[in-house]
């Protein structure tokens, strides 16, 4: 782990001014900000670990907990909101039995909301593992979750 973290820090020339991008890269590498990696960043750059935790909790992009195998991001921008996204959010939460922002205990799903993906013409939008699903509806969320192995009632004909 030491060399991997060092490599990231080297990319930013050991510059403390790039703490946010460094943590972004660390998160990309390990899928979340784990304790060990943060300790290493703190040691290499000589910044207190508390400062890293401050950033880790302030910025939405960071996660201090491991993330699920499937990443679901539901756009809750204003355009999607007025097109009925709250109902779809409730539906996904009900099926996954977690709240938005959480990961299922079996580490299969991380479900989050994002403020705006800027693809409002297709709203509501759900991004599953990087793939965009536009013009979302409740039944579409059902079908997507069923495909990913959840038990969901769907109407086969529609």
């Amino acid at each position: 782990m030491k060399t991997r973290v060092k490599k990231i820090i080297d990319k930013y020339h050991n510059d403390k001014g790039f703490l946010v991008p460094i943590l972004q890269d660390v998160q990309k590498e390990y899928n979340y900000l784990n304790r060990e990696a943060l300790n290493l960043v703190s040691a290499f750059l000589e910044v207190p670990i508390s400062q890293l935790y401050e950033l880790g909790t302030f910025y939405k992009a960071f996660s201090l907990k491991p993330r699920g195998r499937h990443e679901m991001k539901l756009c809750t921008g204003t355009a999607c909101h007025v097109r009925g996204v709250p109902l779809m959010k409730d539906n996904i939460e009900r099926i996954l039995q977690i709240q938005a922002g959480e990961t299922t205990p079996d580490l299969e799903f991380t479900f989050e909301t994002v403020n705006c993906l800027g693809a409002c013409a297709l709203g509501p939008i759900l991004v599953v593992d990087g793939e965009y699903h536009g013009n979302l509806s409740i039944s579409k969320t059902n079908r997507i979750l069923k495909k990913l192995g959840k038990k969901v009632k769907i109407d086969e004909e529609s």
Binding site: T78, A79, H81, N115, C116, G118, C120
Partner: peptide, 8 residues
């Protein structure tokens, strides 16, 4: 840092 939801 275009954060406004609904503006892109």
């Amino acid at each position: 840092d275009e954060g406004d939801p609904g503006a892109y």
